[in-house]
């Protein structure tokens, strides 16, 4: 045994042991948090990977659903949320997880889909097991309340309209695709911190317009404060947040009425159908029928966000994903300019 002649542990050995313990502890920490096998499903904690930051809409939805979904599972297990704050890494982690049903997470359509079409990403969403579509947020084009743009025609007639976005994500993708379809001569300025930073940039005059869903909290608050107004909402029906804003359908752009953010829940490829059904039904029941969940949603003061909850089953989620791929492939040249 290494050590001092008197049998005590020497300083060098002690520090070696410390380094070893730290390394072992790191591996052990990782191992302890990975899923194991169980006889009855579910029999252990289900991890919900949130590739977004913990503080945004994705984090709020995940926290709310994971808090109440266990009551709708056959066995009493916990559901914990892990926020990764990196869409590529987070989606990749969902894709490569063990297909035992104990790791699920958000799949962003069209954000993650657009990145897969335009880049060599370390995941393949087409292989993933889809569990449900939790919510749909129709996008819009918004301008400051005192903007010179009063209508869609004004924007189409302009030489150039500057838009802002965080960059690299769903706002850039949908902004670029929708303005291209609407013949708005868009110039995109990126690098803003989330939807709040983007709206701040617009209000202080960095650029003229944004493409974001009115249900996202900073947009909702800006609408309520009459700081911004919508030029068009990409939906069939008008929004109660902006009842004066015309929809894409009213303006003759029916093809754009589905332009928005789909929040899907999925897991790695190959999750057993029975387990996938258990998870899918628990999520749907939580959203559709759980009184406590709805009260929790109101308590979180994100009412507008939660009004977008539209759970659909596994088949509908697959169709939405396939449609997302079709749309993104049709706009591949636009994606390559912005991703």
């Amino acid at each position: 045994m290494d050590g001092n002649p008197d049998g005590t542990f020497g300083r060098r050995q002690y520090l070696k042991a410390t380094a070893g313990a730290v390394a072992t502890g790191s591996v052990g920490l990782t191992g302890c948090l990975s899923a194991g096998e169980g006889e009855d499903f579910p029999s252990e904690t289900i991890t919900w990977i949130n590739p977004s930051s913990g503080g945004g809409g994705y984090g709020a939805f995940a926290q709310g659903i994971s808090k109440h979904a266990p009551e709708h599972l056959p066995n009493d297990v916990e559901m914990s949320v892990t926020s990764v704050n990196d869409w590529i890494q987070g989606t990749s982690r969902i894709h490569r997880a063990d297909a035992d049903g104990y790791t699920i997470g958000w799949i962003d359509v069209p954000g993650a889909v657009g990145n897969q079409v335009a880049k060599d990403v370390p995941y393949d969403l087409k292989e993933c097991t889809l569990l449900n579509r939790v919510a749909f947020h129709p996008f819009s084009i918004a301008v400051p309340a005192d903007s010179e743009y009063e209508s869609l025609e004004d924007m189409q007639a302009a030489d150039e309209v500057t838009f802002g976005s965080p960059g690299g994500g769903v706002a850039s993708i949908l902004g670029a695709v929708s303005t291209d379809a609407l013949d708005i001569p868009m110039k995109l300025i990126t690098g803003y911190s989330g939807s709040n930073g983007t709206i701040t940039g617009m209000l202080r005059g960095d650029f003229e317009a944004v493409s974001l869903p009115p249900s996202t909290p900073p947009m909702t608050k800006a609408l309520k404060n009459d700081e911004i107004r919508l030029i068009v909402l990409f939906a069939q029906q008008r929004s109660e947040l902006a009842p004066d804003a015309p929809t894409a359908a009213e303006l003759g752009y029916d093809d754009l009425t589905g332009t928005g953010l789909n929040r899907l829940v999925g897991g790695p490829p190959g999750i057993d159908d029975d387990r996938a059904d258990v998870l899918s039904e628990a999520i749907e029941e939580t959203i559709a029928s759980d009184g406590e969940f709805r009260q929790w949603a109101k308590d979180k003061a994100k009412h507008a966000l939660f009004t977008t909850l539209k759970p659909e089953g596994r088949e509908a989620a697959r169709e939405i994903l396939d449609q997302g791929f079709e749309n993104m492939r049709a706009n591949e040249d636009i994606l390559e300019q912005h991703l």
């Binding site: 930051s53 913990g54 503080g55 984090g59 989330g194 709040n196 701040t200 209000l203 608050k221």
Partner: peptide
């Protein structure tokens, strides 16, 4: 701030 969903700037000063 960001980890806890608090965004500096306009939102923090206003709300």
């Amino acid at each position: 701030f960001l980890l806890h969903g608090v965004t500096p700037g306009r939102q923090l000063l206003n709300e």
